[in-house]
Nucleic acid binder design. Sequence first.
DNA 1: TTGAAAGCGATACCAG
DNA 2: CTGGTATCGCTTTCAA
Lengths: 360, 360
Amino acid sequence: MLKKPRNGNSAQHKYPHVGRTVSLASLSAHLGLSKASISRVLNGAPAARSIPQVTQDRILAAAQALNYRPNLLARSLRRGQSMTVGVLVPELSEGYATLVLAGLEETLSAAGYAMMLVTHHHQEAKLTDLHRIVMERAVDGIVAVDTSLPVIHSTPTVTISCPDPHDGVTNILLDHDRAAELALSHLYALGHRQIAIIKGQPFSSDTDIRWRSIQIAATRLGLSLHPKLVVQMKENLATDEPGFLAAQRLLATGIAFTAIFAFNDVSAIGAIRALQAARRQVPEHVSVVGFDDVTLAAYHRPALTTVRQPLRHMGALAAQSLLHSFTSGGNHEASHSVVVEPLFVLRNSTAQSPALSLQC
Amino acid sequence: MLKKPRNGNSAQHKYPHVGRTVSLASLSAHLGLSKASISRVLNGAPAARSIPQVTQDRILAAAQALNYRPNLLARSLRRGQSMTVGVLVPELSEGYATLVLAGLEETLSAAGYAMMLVTHHHQEAKLTDLHRIVMERAVDGIVAVDTSLPVIHSTPTVTISCPDPHDGVTNILLDHDRAAELALSHLYALGHRQIAIIKGQPFSSDTDIRWRSIQIAATRLGLSLHPKLVVQMKENLATDEPGFLAAQRLLATGIAFTAIFAFNDVSAIGAIRALQAARRQVPEHVSVVGFDDVTLAAYHRPALTTVRQPLRHMGALAAQSLLHSFTSGGNHEASHSVVVEPLFVLRNSTAQSPALSLQC
DNA sequence: TTGAAAGCGATACCAG
DNA sequence: CTGGTATCGCTTTCAA
């Protein structure tokens, strides 16, 4: 199918091809030394300590001069280690995954690892397929973000926000109980008693755990959540449309509510759009709390009160955890979790409940 | 710096275990057929046509049953083709690179290619280093986004928004002349005559070409740009801070202006923040035009009037161009450009010049 | 029709 | 101390 000219050695006599591949073999021919010795010196292997400094210098100089670049494919094949990790994310659109990726990238690249990136858009078929693709490329580890992994292979794996327990998998996840408590108690303190909830899409791995935490927090506050005021987003879109539609459904119930706790910032923005379209002001008539604190949240008007996930930090933690499992060589048998704390961010999309003001 | 996880292929002999140690050799042992035949069948090689269907089915069944996964490292080493492209981006923070990446990813993964992602934060040292890293991993091609490539190797390369001409490199770039004309003529039509310009940072590859286009458009409109009302951002930050500081410098000149054409949306937002801090309303006192139309632009208040770059499309184009150069096997000698058109997006950050209103 | 064997490029073991 | 050499897993040519 694809025809790509095989690189011969231009400096050598084999093929008169235009190529620039300098291999250990060509260095060997050039220097009159064995590939073994050259490899040892170039890698600073312990055995190189017993090679005369002159020879070492000669080798290093030649490598420099000929612009020798080790073929990492060959090295990986031999060492069984590719210095690459595969990263699975649902989207590449905005906020969430991007921030996690930034944290991952920083830590991984500092350790000399490269990142193989694939997206799956929450499509089941694509997911197994992409997972396979990543596996075949012999990555040393896998990081999955907001992804329900079908099967865990023996490759070291770290998940971010994937609450399903998998043996031997480290999972970085948010303290959702705390997050729900922060949001709901804030609304409660402002006098809100009729609080609507916008749940995440079924395919989002945070959806269930978040909802459970919300119920717990509500119970603890003595707050009852009206079943009809709990709606779930369905659409697999990375825009604010799902939140918009969800809020419309809330409004359609005709049941009074003074606040919305949305699944994330983007859906909160969609919800605000729906409220405004229905002539309800935010935060005067309805308070809205988002989630994540993506960049958008601060710039939106009204600026979003939200629960920040330390996404960048979560990415860095995942990377560290993976790197650790490389060096400690072990995949622990049990599922291991790292819990990170959310931070409440107060902005302008929440205010005292209008119900409260009426009482005054 | 890195390494030493001495990995000696420990799980080599666990043959019945379903893991990634299922090789052609183990299949061969299992089936009593040669690796050659198995490889042929599994790859649908032409030579497989002369193998009995029964045998083929037996092979396929066994591969399925044992969950055989070809080692792509070995294959790549042998074929000299890795089905992977390296992608260099400056940041992973917001909008710009993310959208380009989304377009890239979609097209590449549809063609079976994976993406190796590295960021360089515009740091010279890191740039050459990362470029090397990507090269060593034997990628089939490279896509560089807003990156000034130090050296072009023989690897097929496509750049996005890198106006420096490089032989044999396809460059996807925006029609900056048109973009500048759209923005300035809009402001001109609104009566603005004292227009300030916020130029991009020196390291951003669009900076120079954009500025040149602005000058051309201004000249054509008979608009003179006051030298002191042209400021350049310096800070290497992905936040709105550089724009904020630039606008502060504009204000500090004491020279009157009624509009700002910013280098991008994020700097426009920073500029608006500075203006508001100085009690100048946008768009009532000062109109602001952004650039790029990142997601933020629409959600910011006032919503940004801006010039949209079809970033996602540019990513897709780059991927297509790269894929094309793979199949056509050739690296064309001359530098080749693909120009895409900007789209003017009218929102709420621009209005009639107050100077004009005064005349009424 | 099928199999044996020669690599791809680098690393690591084992003699000398 | 150093140089052969087997090996990693796969593809592909050459023979049988």
